[in-house]
Design a protein around this nucleic acid. Structure first.
Length: 836
RNA sequence: GCGGAAGUGGUGAAAUGGCAAACACACUAGCCUUAGGAGCUAGCGCCGCAAGGCUUGCGGGUUCAAGUCCCGCCUUCCGCACCA
């Protein structure tokens, strides 16, 4: 009985065995020193939040990265392939509330559980470089960076309207608000609150962040486009309109200053300071403005701000156009946004669709100031928004092209000191204060005498107190911990208060990949030497959902570190790969839909190799993958076939010597050897950039199918033992990036000793001579339609191919009595006869 | 509305402009059996007994040749959206 059972592929026995052997040799996956002569290769997958359980999306992400890392190791690269934990964040506090577990314990337990899952699946991470962002030896460097940025005026504090999620009970960055809702709570509307907040001056790098995108050719175009839109650069002009009978000026932003003679009103955002001022002395106006604000808010809530019914109020006041002194009415309108441009616009109904709609509704005059350049053409209907016309009704600017006029008008504004050319960005500074406990304490002290005082470097880290009661009360939980709050001012020594907000967790993930290069450094975030050796990252792999948040913040951080002189690279990652989602039955896996597939289940039923190999086989990595358990079972059956094949022939292989490179083999042996070398070539090529791992797995299956079909010949000794040996050894090597446990097992069965030996075994080379067929089938077409196939040598010249085609019986039959007008021969590919 | 991606068998999918559907899953028939979530053999786009014909969302075009390139349209998914 027991003997019989051994003849079965048993991942439950094989995998833990290798897992243990590999764990006993932690140097196995360690990178060589930063001085290594081998070319470096830095590949990482985005670090997970330690929720406590891996999901299939993780498994897919890590299987892609792991295949690549293993392949690069075998190619002789010095590979750094680390893993870490994005360990701060709200779920830990929620769990604390629910289960009365301290966030730290909860988080560390989750990390332990997920690390174990990763090890069970066999990902080749160097655990010596593990980074856990919630531990003081990591977050102290967040504080250190914060202080450096404070010194460089890249950190500031201001009172401002901020996004507040009632569910999180904290502030959100603009990037974390999606259609007016919280990024973590799709059903929760974000409120606006006035709060003193810390900001990172990411806008100082807006232009560089934008320009850099052009050079990131290894990034998906989609991500680059999304970032371009997010940064939202727009060139235009700011112009001051005077206000009749008042001292204020209204500064408007426009991209079409050339249309300014057609401005027939000025529109203010409901929250514009002048509106607030006017409303103060006018109760009726105040109430109406409140309605407008309400309408904007509602529109944001439904996420349909584009469809809002335009609505406005005439204030009764007039603005004065600085170019012609003309008086135009001042309105307040619900389609003008306070947080873009200056919160005020000039309204030119003749040349802007929104202004046109508004003017029609309220009977505001419409004045055409742009005409077609061609005077004979019929005037187009209004609104006419194209920018290729000439100015009319525009005083001394009439007759100029739009572009010329824009330049002249900007010059006039500058010399008259009533405006200037400007560049506006949609990107806002990054608000990083969070009124939460489980995050990095902000290293600042509020002193009555000295004001804001940075914590001195030698007092870092500002430790997060361990024992704290988490409640649902508003405000920062740390403010209720006197031992934390009460300090002496580092400057004057008088009693002072610590800042009690913590940092946005996106700070943690903005530079974690630098820490991997020097994870245990106690005197700096990382050494420049190591940072410069490993950076930029060669390949970064993760989900497209981070296209804006994480990927823009970490680009910003890299530029800041460069300007601090810590590194030389401008961008963190050379290449970015965004893998598709894992879905089930056509929908994203989610608890509420009840279609979640647990990686643990899959591993328990089919083994880690089958699970990860299926994740690579079922779809190309950039596409969504529909998880079908039958498919995993299929891959598992395939691995069992491989195992049996090796088991049956391992003795033969072990006893044999290497196969000669210049083989005189014939028949089945030659056929198998050819298939092998074709397969090696295909997979090697794919690893070099195309990454269609699904077809790589398919190619290995084809090779195995062919070996299996030759089973009888192999058993009969028709295939020389050295060829059997070569086939099996190479099969193991080809499988190593995809199914590492089975590969290691095969390697051992074949008499290759040493733990982890297959990891460092050289990747096989395809021998072009052995990969070459001695005859290929060429399609013969008549007028583009396939007629037959003819056999020719692979390097046959055009004449030979033409002759082979024309002498073919089927072709003869088809062309009899007709004229062959033309013969097109594509060497090695096809013959097409044009017949009349 | 703007931008991007995709649309191929019952399913996941494959195809440097040159044999559409490789490799798998499911299914059908048969064999084997230690009855297993096993193994082996054969079949499996559509019409047709066959010969043969048809077939890559729809319509045009380029080309000796188009799933692939170009133009227009439809559908689905993703991102952005009174951004002045």
């Amino acid at each position: 009985m027991a003997e019989e059972k051994e003849l079965r592929y048993d991942p439950a026995a094989i995998e833990p065995k290798w897992q243990q052997r590999w764990a006993e040799d932690p140097a196995l996956y360690a990178a060589e020193p930063a001085s290594s002569e081998n070319p470096k290769y830095y590949v990482i997958e985005m670090l997970p939040y330690p929720s406590g359980k891996l999901h299939m999306g993780h498994v897919r992400n890590y299987s892609i990265g792991d295949a690549l890392a293993r392949h690069m190791w075998m190619r002789g690269y010095n590979v750094l392939h680390p893993m870490g934990w994005d360990a701060f964040g709200l779920p830990a506090e929620n769990a604390a509330l629910k289960n009365n577990t301290p966030p730290r314990e909860w988080t560390l337990a989750n990390i332990a559980a997920m690390r174990q899952q990763m090890q069970r699946i066999g990902f080749s991470y160097d655990w010596a470089t593990e980074v856990t962002t919630c531990l003081p030896d990591y977050y102290r460097w967040n504080q250190w960076f914060f202080l450096r940025m404070y010194e460089k005026n890249l950190v500031y504090r201001k009172k401002s309207k901020v996004n507040w999620c009632p569910e999180c009970a904290t502030v959100l960055a603009n990037e974390q608000v999606i259609n007016g809702r919280c990024w973590r709570h799709e059903d929760t509307l974000v409120e606006q609150r006035d709060l003193e907040q810390w900001f990172f001056r990411i806008t100082a790098y807006a232009q560089e962040l934008l320009d850099g995108l052009d050079k990131l050719e290894g990034w998906p175009e989609k991500v680059r486009t999304m970032q371009r839109n997010w940064i939202g650069r727009s060139e235009g002009t700011e112009v001051d309109f005077g206000v009749e009978d008042r001292s204020e000026k209204i500064r408007v932003f426009t991209t079409r200053v050339d249309t300014i003679f057609g401005a027939t009103s000025v529109q203010l955002a409901p929250e514009h300071p002048l509106v607030t001022a006017l409303a103060e002395s006018n109760v009726g106006l105040k109430a109406q403005v409140a309605t407008l604000i309400d309408e904007q808010k509602k529109a944001k809530e439904t996420g349909d701000i584009g469809a809002i019914e335009k609505h406005g109020i005439a204030t009764g006041y007039f603005a004065i156009n600085p170019y012609n002194g003309e008086k135009v009415p001042i309105w307040v309108a619900n389609y003008v946004l306070m947080d873009y441009g200056t919160g005020a616009i000039m309204s030119v109904p003749a040349h802007d669709e929104r202004d046109f709609e508004f003017a029609k509704k309220y009977g505001i005059p419409i004045v055409r100031v742009i005409a077609l350049a061609d005077p004979n053409a019929e005037e187009p209907e209004l609104p006419f928004t194209a920018e290729d016309g000439v100015l009319v009704n525009s005083g001394r600017y009439s007759g100029m092209s739009c572009a010329d006029a824009q330049k002249r008008l900007q010059e006039a504004a500058a010399s008259g000191a009533f405006g200037e050319a400007t560049v506006t960005f949609r990107l806002k500074d990054w608000g990083v204060s969070r009124q939460r406990y489980w995050g990095t304490p902000i290293p600042m002290i509020h002193c009555e005498r000295d004001g804001l005082v940075p914590v001195p470097d030698d007092q870092l880290p500002v430790l997060l107190p361990d024992r704290i009661e988490i409640t649902q009360q508003g405000g920062s939980p740390l403010s209720r911990v006197p031992e934390f709050v009460d300090v002496k001012c580092p400057r004057c020594g008088e009693p002072a208060k610590r800042e009690t907000d913590t940092m946005d967790t996106f700070v943690d993930s903005s530079w974690y990949f630098y820490r991997y290069t020097d994870a245990k450094n106690a005197s700096a975030p990382f050494s420049s030497e190591r940072g410069q050796y490993w950076f930029p990252i060669d390949q970064y792999i993760g989900g497209v959902e981070h296209a804006i948040l994480h990927l823009i913040y970490s680009r910003f951080w890299t530029k800041v570190m460069r300007d601090l002189g810590m590194i030389k690279n401008d961008e963190p990652a050379q290449r970015l790969f965004t893998q598709g989602m894992v879905i089930k039955d056509g929908a994203k896996m989610s608890k509420s839909k009840g279609n979640v597939v647990s990686p643990d289940d899959m591993v328990a039923r089919y083994g880690a190799d089958a699970t990860r190999m299926y994740a690579l086989f079922a779809a190309p990595p950039d596409r969504d993958l529909d998880w079908q358990e039958d498919g995993v079972a299929g891959v598992s059956r395939f691995l069992a076939r491989v195992w049996r094949l090796a088991e049956k022939n391992s003795a033969t292989a072990r006893a044999a010597g290497p196969a000669a490179a210049e083989t005189q083999n014939t028949g089945t042996a030659l056929k198998l050897q050819r298939k092998l070398h074709q397969t090696i070539a295909k997979i090697t090529q794919d690893f070099e950039g195309r990454w269609h791992f699904n077809t790589c797995v398919a190619a290995i299956m084809e090779l195995v199918n062919e070996m299996q079909a030759a089973d009888a010949q192999i058993a009969a000794g028709e295939v020389p033992a050295p060829v059997v040996r070569e086939l099996l050894r190479n099969l193991a090597l080809l499988l190593a990036p995809f199914a590492p446990y089975l590969a290691a097992e095969l390697w051992e069965m074949l008499g290759q000793s040493g733990d982890g030996a297959i990891l460092r075994a050289p990747w096989p080379k395809s021998d072009p001579g052995l990969a070459k067929e001695d005859e290929i089938e060429i399609p013969v077409q008549i007028n583009g339609k396939l007629v037959t196939l003819v056999r020719v040598p692979p390097d046959a010249d055009g004449k030979t191919m033409e002759a082979a085609a024309l002498t073919d019986e089927k072709v003869q039959g088809r062309i009899a009595g007709k004229t062959v007008a033309k013969v097109i021969v594509v060497p090695g590919r096809a013959v097409n006869l044009v017949v009349k």
